[in-house]
Simulated scan of single mutants.
Amino acid sequence: MAYLWILTTLVASVAQTARNAMQRSLTETLGTVGASQVRFLYGFPFALLFLLAVSQIGGEAAPAATGRYLAWVLGGAVTQILATVLMLATMRERSFAVTTAYIKTEPVQVAIFGLLFLGDHLTLGGALAIVVATAGVVMMAVKPGSPGLTAAGLRPAVLGIVAGAFFALSAIGFRGAILTLESGSFVLRATTTLAWSLGMQTALLVVWLGLFDRPALMKSFGAWRPSLMAGFAGAFASQFWFLGFSLTSAANVRTLALVEVLLAQAVSKRLFGQETTAREIIGMTLIVGGVVLLLWTHGT
């Protein structure tokens, strides 16, 4: 059980890599908010199915939601929406790789927010692991001869870093909600929180698009086939993120999640025959070193 969070995080990372690819392809047809909305609208039914299955298998009813619990969930839900919108907006201005460098400052930020809001303390080794792995991501994203992180101006840099901050806050909100629940197994508490969060996010975005961008809302209903797959992938990934948050600090989960960068690199090499440069090898080595240090610190 002490190391189960490692497995859940790895599964979530693979599912999220697939979800991001699907969601990004929808941005051109649905717009930034419309593409953000499909992961919630089409993910919510799957979250309810997950909750029903967990309740039936475990023989437990979903724990009651208190006002404090709902406040944590709402905080996580709203900041995740904002983070997703800002991430897709950044992708429209900069490359996927550079956007990743901005977003993946998240582990550093989630460690700070976790300490401030939840009292999740990090060891010196854990803090060093976060810094080393994050440095590896930045090194892989910024290549010699290509525009630097700030070459396109301050706007995409600010958007990306703020997106990372909102992703960090959403992780803290969801972990805070899970810890607030007083009954149920860690699986039931995580799945209950997933259902509540996706329900809130669906309601908020349907109302927003209905008031301010009805064409995008109608297009999301029309594009239900690709959106359904993106929704399932999103709900599946979130299920395993939440399981990780129920087992260990959000900083541990989000640092290990940097393996997504290695997965993306492997996919690029496999599908597109892209060569791996010496700089990318150094970056990957730093990521792996940071992750190994994190796991070693966690086990000592």
Results as ranks from 00 to 15, higher is better:
Gly125Trp: 15
Gly114Ala: 13
Thr180Arg: 01
Ala101Ser: 14
Gly153Met: 02
Val162Arg: 00
Val98Glu: 10
Ala237Asn: 07
Leu256Gln: 11
Ala266Tyr: 10
Gly283Trp: 09
Leu74Pro: 05
Thr191Arg: 01
Thr99Lys: 01
Val132Ala: 09
Leu41Gln: 04
Arg254Gly: 05
Leu70Lys: 04
Gly126Met: 12
Phe221Val: 15
Gln37Trp: 08
Phe46Ile: 11
Leu211Glu: 06
Leu118Gly: 06
Trp72Asp: 10
Arg39Ile: 14
Gly126Trp: 08
Ile161Tyr: 15
Phe50Glu: 10
Met22Ala: 09
Leu211His: 06
Trp5Pro: 14
Leu115Lys: 07
Val259Tyr: 10
Leu116Asp: 08
Val142Gln: 08
His298Leu: 03
Gly119Pro: 13
Leu211Lys: 00
Met22Gly: 03
Ala165Cys: 14
Arg270Ser: 14
Gly231Met: 08
Ala171Glu: 09
Leu204Pro: 07
Val132Thr: 07
Val131Phe: 13
Val291Phe: 01
Leu295Thr: 06
Val137Ser: 12
Leu243Val: 04
Phe245Ser: 01
Gln16Cys: 09
Phe174Met: 14
Gly148Pro: 10
Trp5Thr: 05
Ser36Asn: 14
Ala12Thr: 12
Gly31Tyr: 00
Val11Met: 13
Ser220Cys: 06
Arg189Cys: 03
Leu10Thr: 10
Thr123Met: 09
Thr32Trp: 00
Leu217Ile: 13
Ala61Arg: 12
Arg270Tyr: 15
Ser238Cys: 02
Ala83Val: 02
Phe166Thr: 04
Leu262Thr: 06
Ile287Arg: 00
Ile161Trp: 15
Phe113Ser: 06
Ile172Pro: 14
Ala230Trp: 12
Val187Trp: 14
Val288Glu: 03
Ala12Phe: 15
Val73Thr: 08
Trp5Tyr: 15
Leu205Arg: 00
Gly184Pro: 12
Ser246His: 07
Pro215Phe: 15
Gly59Glu: 07
Leu293Trp: 05
Thr248Met: 05
Phe272Ile: 01
Arg155Ser: 09
Thr277Lys: 00
Gly76Ser: 02
Phe50Gln: 02
Val292Met: 02
Ser170Thr: 03
Gly125Lys: 01
Thr285Gly: 15
Ser25Leu: 04
Pro144Leu: 04
Ala171Gly: 14
Ile57Val: 13
Leu88Phe: 15
Gly273Phe: 13
Gly31Ala: 02
Gly148Met: 01
Arg279His: 10
Ala168Ile: 13
Lys143Leu: 13
Leu256Arg: 13
Ile287His: 03
Leu263Ser: 05
Leu51Gln: 11
Ile281Phe: 12
Lys219Trp: 06
Leu41His: 01
Thr191Leu: 05
Ala89Trp: 00
Pro226His: 02
Gly76Met: 07
Lys269Cys: 10
Ala251Gly: 06
Ala61Glu: 08
Trp196Gln: 04
Leu205Lys: 00
Phe221Glu: 02
Leu74Asp: 04
Ser170Gln: 08
Leu122Trp: 06
Pro45Cys: 06
Ala65His: 06
Glu28Gly: 11
Ala62Trp: 10
Leu124Ile: 14
Thr79Cys: 11
Leu49Ala: 15
Val259Gly: 11
Ala35Asn: 05
Ala163Lys: 00
